[in-house]
Design a protein around this nucleic acid. Structure first.
Length: 278
DNA sequence: CCACTCCTGCGT
DNA sequence: ACGCAGGAGTGG
């Protein structure tokens, strides 16, 4: 479900509902979340009786900090983090609940359980720092950083851009959109992009992510922010999910191919397999 | 670098 | 009944 713009919207709506409140107690289900249930004792130590200092994001990862540590949270495909009145009905597939000092409850619902919740003490674990540059950080995400990372791999550019160590936060939707805007065919080997193509690709990634955030995320089926509100970016997609429909630029039918067992949408006219010679 | 795996739900 | 879905780790 959630890529960077959705996770950023969750962060922005979650932060004012958590920051300054104290977590009274925690609960978690015993079902696996990304292959393991969160460790209950560690969760209690990291959160219980602690004030929430900040809600941070890098790529698709969220970090909720307390004075003694905190939790890292990834929403996977279907994760939802919300804050609701403590007496609100508990949804099916609720895997985490934390009672807050203001009478609300912070909850994680995740039907498919591809998400994760990693409590930690002290500094955040390595997955937080193993991420590549975040496209909302102009200091870190530069044309040169993108060029260097893509030159290093022979994988198809679409698959390389899904690698969170190359760029943090892109997923299937926003990669398709960025490649369409920059007119790059998704099957082209990353290392074979022309030098002149990196600036347009970089710009398209920055723009498409900024647009997604402005529109409060893409709600195709079940994504909602921490207040339970849907986003609006699904009305601004150019190619994702639009197989057979006209390309918004040239009206050719949008095509779909499979890459890494997932669908890739693109326009074969706007995104030629061989770039025009300069 | 590939295919497979972890899950539920929804649409065909 | 089957295939597909916004993700990503793992193991060959």
């Amino acid at each position: 479900m959630p890529e960077l713009p959705e996770v950023e919207t969750v962060r922005a709506t979650l932060a004012p509902l958590l920051e300054g409140r104290t977590v009274l107690s925690t609960w978690r289900s015993r079902l696996n979340l990304h292959r393991q249930p969160p460790r209950a004792a560690l969760l209690e130590r990291a959160l219980a009786r602690q004030p929430v200092l900040a809600v941070l994001r890098r790529g698709k990862l969220l970090s909720v900090r307390t004075p003694v540590g905190g939790v890292l949270c990834h929403l996977g495909m279907t994760g939802r983090l919300t804050v609701e009145p403590a007496d609100a009905p508990v949804a099916l597939h609720t895997h985490f609940r934390a009672a807050l000092s203001d009478g609300h409850e912070w909850r994680l619902v995740d039907p498919r359980r591809f998400g994760m919740l990693h409590p930690f003490e002290g500094d955040p674990p390595a997955d937080w720092s193993a991420l590549g540059p975040d496209p909302t950080d102009p200091q870190a995400f530069t044309v040169e950083a993108l060029r260097a990372a893509l030159k290093r791999t022979r994988r198809a550019v679409k698959l390389a851009l899904l690698d969170q160590a190359v760029v943090a936060g892109l997923g299937n939707i926003y990669v398709a959109e960025a490649l369409h805007i920059s007119r790059i065919h998704p099957l082209r080997p990353a290392h074979a992009l022309r030098d002149r193509e990196f600036a347009p690709l970089h710009g398209a990634i920055v723009d498409v992510i900024a647009q997604g955030i402005r529109n409060r995320g893409t709600s195709l089926s079940d994504y909602v922010d921490a207040r339970g509100e849907r986003g609006g970016n699904q009305f601004h997609l150019r190619v994702y999910g639009r197989a057979g429909e006209p390309c918004p630029v040239c009206e050719s039918a949008v095509r779909v191919v499979t890459q890494g067992q997932r669908s890739t949408f693109f326009c074969a006219t706007c995104q030629p397999r061989r770039p025009a010679r300069a």
